[in-house]
Nucleic acid binder design. Structure first.
Lengths: 142, 142
DNA sequence: CTTGTTGCAAAGCGTTTGCAGTAGA
DNA sequence: TCTACTGCAAACGCTTTGCAACAAG
């Protein structure tokens, strides 16, 4: 999802395209991993000296409500990223070094996971954590 | 894990067995699902009028550090439960109604999930959410 | 011009800390 | 007795709110 696509979607909803939102849109469309509100605040703060945290939160919530951003609750806090563009159901490999994600088509629910008859499955979560090739060759691995 | 086992483990570490900790131990050993700090505070508050939240947090952290309690970061907050007694690697079905968990032996990592050669897997998470038989027959389902 | 957006300040919530009194071993 | 534990109060970090000034359409 490009920055322009995000902005168009916002404009279509009657939202105003401010300078800040332009920066926010391109930040997320360029981001390869997850961003915390703090990440966003620090990045945006470089350009907007008077930036306040509440505006960051307001815009993050807005984009999340508009289904543009996905929100994850991780152990070290809340993180955001643009919704996966892939249409088919899939899961992710998540790099512990750079937090980039790689899609995996494999889904455990389609491959033999047996649940008791009386358990009604609503949703499931399958995530693999580790280090991507780039982080393994570099020195980022803890 | 029984309340006594928890208390013995604490005593062995040189910790003191207070009335509050006795209650806490039996609360967790009897609990079928996850408990939030607030749950614990409210339950314990019934017996100890002057109870304070910080003591609840201190004891939860203590039991977590001692590897007696497991801590989960869920979307609606942090929750605790006693560590699974099962020895073998397994995953869980989690009931959205009563939050009880059912173990499943199936593990996606042992059943054909293919990851790129250069991705080094460290850990994984597989959880199935839904409604257990009891909650389906009752009226607890939203 | 009209209404959405922003920054500020303040409050909210969940969690942690320092301290002095209390109670377990 | 001695030291760990507790409650109190206060502080903390993250997030949300009300309000008045501002800027996009």
């Amino acid at each position: 999802m490009t920055a322009d696509e995000i902005l168009q979607k916002m404009a279509k909803e009657g939202l105003r395209i401010t300078e800040q939102r332009k920066t926010l849109a391109s930040l997320f469309s360029d981001a390869e991993g997850y961003l915390t509100p703090k990440d966003v605040y620090e990045f945006m703060g470089k350009r907007y000296s008077g930036l306040s945290f509440d505006t960051v939160y307001r815009n993050l919530r807005l984009l999340h409500d508009m289904n543009i951003l996905e929100q994850f609750v991780m152990e070290d806090g809340v993180k955001f990223r643009v919704h996966c563009s892939e249409h088919s159901h899939h899961h992710h490999l998540i790099c512990l070094g750079c937090e980039r994600t790689l899609p995996v088509a494999f889904c455990p629910m389609e491959t033999g996971c047996e649940v008791p008859d009386d358990f009604q499955v609503v949703r499931h979560k399958f995530e693999v954590y580790g280090y991507c090739g780039e982080c393994r060759s570099g020195a980022q691995q803890p």
